[in-house]
Each structure stands twice: as C-alpha cells, then as structure tokens.
C-alpha cells in the first residue's frame, strides 16, 4: 500500500528528478566554495569529497524535516479511505526524500569518480550503515516534528533556524577527530555525528579516525520514535478533516 501511495506521489511530481537535483546543486556549490576558500585538502582528506559527503545527508535531514510539517493536515483528505493511516503520509514523504538524497549521492560520487575526484569507498559496509543510521534517526525525528507542527504554529517558524544552529553538531563540516580530546565524547551524544563519522570512515578508510557509537544512535532513535508515535496517536484523535 505504501508503494501505491508512492507511485501516486511519483505521478503527481512529474519532476521527481528535482528531488535529486536540488541536493546535488547545493552540495556541488558548497563544495566548490570550500575548495576555493580552503584549498584542496583539509586534515589530510580531499575537501570536495568531504563537503559533499557531509552536505547530502544534511539536505536529507533538512528536507525530510521541513516536508513533514503539517503533513497530516495537507493529506487529510486521503483519510477518507480507512486503509490509509497517518503513518503512510510520513513514511512516503520520508522515503521520497531518502531515495532522492541517496540517488544524488550515488550520482555525484559516480560522476566525480569518473573524473578521478572521488575515491571508491574503502568500506561499503560502513558507508551504508552510516546512511542507514542517519536515515533512521531522521525518520524518528520526523515522527515527533510532524505531530508537533499540527499543535503549534511556532514550530514551523523556529524549525529552519534550528536546523541551521544544529549544523555544527551534525558532523557535516567537521570530524570529531579534529576536536580536542576532551570535547570528543560530548559530540557523540549527537546521533548525526556518529552516523556521519561512519559515512566518512566508509569513504576515506584509514585516512580518518572515526568516533562513533551505534548504540547511542539506536537508543535515541527509539526514544524519539516512542514519543513520536504517542504524539501521532493524539493528533489522529484531534485531526479535523474537511
């Protein structure tokens, strides 16, 4: 059933490719700027690869979170059919963003690899595991943000700012290794950091030394999902459908 909804969205969005192109453009431009500002390498890794590998997961998070605002209200007319639950809305939107981001990543990596600018991943397992954790955590956050956005208008306004502020704590443009040893354990409290470190390690191999803690990511994601599911239940009871 989710797949059916998915195809429906697919047909609605004639330019499904846009989902992929937007992160590509962003990541590409940001990478070029950084390249121009800071030179070809930083801390021994290629800066273009570094920025791209950080930026695309970040766009996944940003888009997924923005797209889930008011998702219930917007899609509520579909609730006329009892087979469709509010979770379908969330999951479908999230999957579209996830597929888009992953396609973008694969695409840019392949193209750059062709020109010798992007390394073959040293460890595919770590790369995929990092992506997976990143996605799981993002989805669990969406489960909370979507119902909250129905309760409060403020959230909608605050969220873009919040996503900017969290960039330093997301591991997008820095690695834990570069921090003073004392600060490192604190960064691992952010699930994004763990996931990013794994993605980086999968790409660069031993050129970087990753710090990550899978259990923290999973536990935080589970707690967020539990809260989110409870909030979703509340929202469903109160949802008014035109």
């Amino acid at each position: 059933m989710i797949r059916e909804l998915n195809t429906r969205f697919g047909r609605e969005n004639i330019g499904f490719l846009w989902v992929m192109v937007e992160p590509l453009l962003f990541a590409g431009l940001v990478a070029i700027t950084w390249r121009a500002m800071k030179g070809p390498e930083e801390h021994g890794v290629d800066i273009i690869v570094f920025v791209i590998s950080g930026y695309i997961p970040l766009t996944l998070f940003r888009h997924a979170v923005t797209r889930c605002i008011k998702v219930f209200e917007v899609n509520s007319s579909l609730l006329y059919h009892r087979q469709i639950t509010i979770f379908d809305f969330l999951i479908v939107r999230f999957l579209i963003e996830m597929i888009g981001a992953m396609l973008a990543f694969t695409f840019i990596a392949t193209v750059l690899h062709f020109f010798g600018l992007f390394p073959a991943p040293k460890s595919m397992g770590f790369l995929l595991a990092g992506w997976l954790l990143y996605s799981i955590f993002t989805l669990s956050l969406c489960l909370i943000i979507a119902p909250l956005s129905e309760f409060s208008e403020v959230l909608e306004k605050v969220l873009p700012v919040a996503t900017y502020i969290m960039i330093p704590f997301s591991g997008t443009f820095n690695m834990v290794e570069w921090l003073p040893a004392a600060a490192r354990p604190y960064m691992l409290w952010s699930p994004f950091v763990s996931a990013m470190e794994m993605i980086r390690y999968g790409l660069f191999g031993d050129a970087v030394y990753p710090y990550y803690d899978v259990s923290v990511v999973l536990v935080v994601a589970m707690i967020c999902s539990a809260i989110g599911l409870a909030l979703c239940r509340r929202v469903r009871r109160r949802l008014t459908v035109e």
């Binding site: 059933m1 429906r8 006329y80 059919h81």
Partner: peptide
C-alpha cells in the same frame, strides 16, 4: 472527501482500485 483534486478522474480511479 476521497479525491485528490490535482489528479484526473482516471488517476483517482486507479488509486481507489489499488487501495
């Protein structure tokens, strides 16, 4: 209720036949 306004009548029919 029950329709997606942006979709055509046929698309709605296809959607309903699926679910």
């Amino acid at each position: 209720g029950g329709f997606q306004g942006a979709l055509t009548g046929y698309d709605n029919a296809r959607f309903i036949s699926r679910i």
